[in-house]
Every structure is written in C-alpha cells, then in structure tokens.
Amino acid sequence: MQVIFHRLAEAIYFSTAARDDGVTVMVPGYDRTSPVPHDLAHFVAEHEFGLDRGFWGSVAAGAMFTNMKVVEGRRRPHADERSKRILKANGMWVGASEALAGAVHDAVEEGHTPEHALAALRRMHGVVSTEPLPIKVADVERAIGALRAAAARWAEVPVGEGMALQWRLPVHDPGAGRRRSKARKSGRRLPRGAR
C-alpha cells in the first residue's frame, strides 16, 4: 500500500492510501500544531515495531475508520462487513499503535530520550497487561531515528505537494481463512479477489 502525506499548509495535512484492493482512501489530519503529522508518527512507529494490525495495517487490510472516505476506486461487495470484522479484531492493536506512536512522536517533538519513551510505554502497557512489554530500548531508539528521518523529509515537502511512503508489512485479514475453509467444505468456489 502506498501512503502519501499531502501538505496543505505549514502544519495542515491529509493522507491518501492506495490499497491493494484498488481503492484509494483519504484520511484527514487533525493535529494542526505539530510539525510532524501524528499519522506519519503512526506509520513509522507501526512499521518499525512490526505492528501489522494497528491503524495503517487495518487500513491496508480494508478497514474504513469513520473519518475516512473513498476518493478513488470501487469497494468490493461486503466491504462494510469486512471493515467491521477487521476493526473488531484489531481494536486492541489499534489502541497499542496509538500508545507506540504517541511515545515515539513525543520523543521526536519534545526531545525525550528512548529510555523516557520506553518508560512511558511500560506504564501504559501495565494498565492492560501483567506480562512484560516485549520492547527494548534499542527498538525505541530505532523507531525514534526512523521518525526523525521521516520528519526531516516532511520538513522539505512544499505546500501543495506530498511525501510517499510504502507500507511493507503483511496484511492481516481476520476471518479470511475461515471463509476459505467454509467454501472448501461446501464445495463452493470463492469469488475472485477473496483468495
């Protein structure tokens, strides 16, 4: 999936995502004061931590969040049901991606150390789990470095232009295997594109 961050003004942007299903969606940007777009921080953090079921991973799989709209292409039959299934299955991961993106974003914008960002992530993680957080300071350091590099690229984007990034994590569509299994048992063939 290709995601383009479009600059409308100094701190105003929106994103478009050209998904593998032939649909391009638009995601409005809401953070008007931050030099680094929050959705860019999401993209980088999710990619660096391998979180394929966060916000951008859900978009790649076919989810439609309420603020999004289709700007090109045609959604497949049952796309709304698929979106609901993905959003329900990925809800916890979307929440986790918010925490990851927030910690990395704050580190870049406010100059926090990787250790400070990791401590914040551990506190948030402790609210939902007693398991140790499977992230090391080196992981946070790498994500902060990647966001700093993306932020430097973004700073060079003129108003009216955009910055393209490629989503390379695998698409996770919960329920896709279940539909295939049911079709095999019943002898039905799946429609094209559902395999």
Results as ranks from 00 to 15, higher is better:
residue 1 M to K: 02
residue 2 Q to G: 02
residue 2 Q to F: 06
residue 4 I to W: 04
residue 5 F to L: 14
residue 7 R to E: 07
residue 7 R to Y: 08
residue 8 L to K: 08
residue 9 A to Q: 14
residue 10 E to R: 13
residue 13 Y to V: 02
residue 15 S to T: 14
residue 16 T to A: 02
residue 21 D to Q: 05
residue 22 G to V: 10
residue 25 V to C: 00
residue 25 V to P: 00
residue 29 G to M: 10
residue 31 D to M: 03
residue 31 D to A: 09
residue 35 P to D: 14
residue 37 P to T: 11
residue 41 A to W: 03
residue 41 A to N: 12
residue 42 H to Q: 05
residue 42 H to P: 05
residue 43 F to A: 04
residue 51 L to D: 02
residue 53 R to T: 15
residue 54 G to D: 08
residue 56 W to E: 00
residue 60 A to Y: 05
residue 60 A to R: 01
residue 67 N to G: 07
residue 69 K to D: 07
residue 76 R to G: 08
residue 77 P to L: 07
residue 88 K to A: 15
residue 91 G to M: 08
residue 95 G to Y: 08
residue 96 A to K: 09
residue 97 S to T: 05
residue 97 S to V: 01
residue 98 E to H: 08
residue 101 A to M: 05
residue 106 D to A: 13
residue 108 V to S: 08
residue 109 E to K: 03
residue 115 E to K: 11
residue 117 A to P: 07
residue 120 A to Q: 13
residue 120 A to D: 12
residue 121 L to D: 02
residue 122 R to T: 14
residue 124 M to L: 14
residue 125 H to T: 04
residue 127 V to C: 00
residue 127 V to L: 12
residue 129 S to T: 09
residue 130 T to N: 11
residue 132 P to L: 03
residue 133 L to M: 07
residue 134 P to S: 07
residue 136 K to Y: 08
residue 139 D to T: 04
residue 145 G to C: 08
residue 148 R to W: 00
residue 149 A to E: 13
residue 150 A to F: 02
residue 151 A to S: 11
residue 152 A to W: 06
residue 153 R to V: 08
residue 154 W to Q: 13
residue 158 P to M: 03
residue 159 V to R: 12
residue 159 V to S: 01
residue 161 E to V: 00
residue 164 A to M: 05
residue 165 L to S: 03
residue 166 Q to F: 05
residue 167 W to H: 03
residue 168 R to C: 09
residue 173 D to V: 15
residue 179 R to F: 09
residue 182 K to R: 14
residue 184 R to H: 13
residue 185 K to A: 14
residue 190 L to P: 06
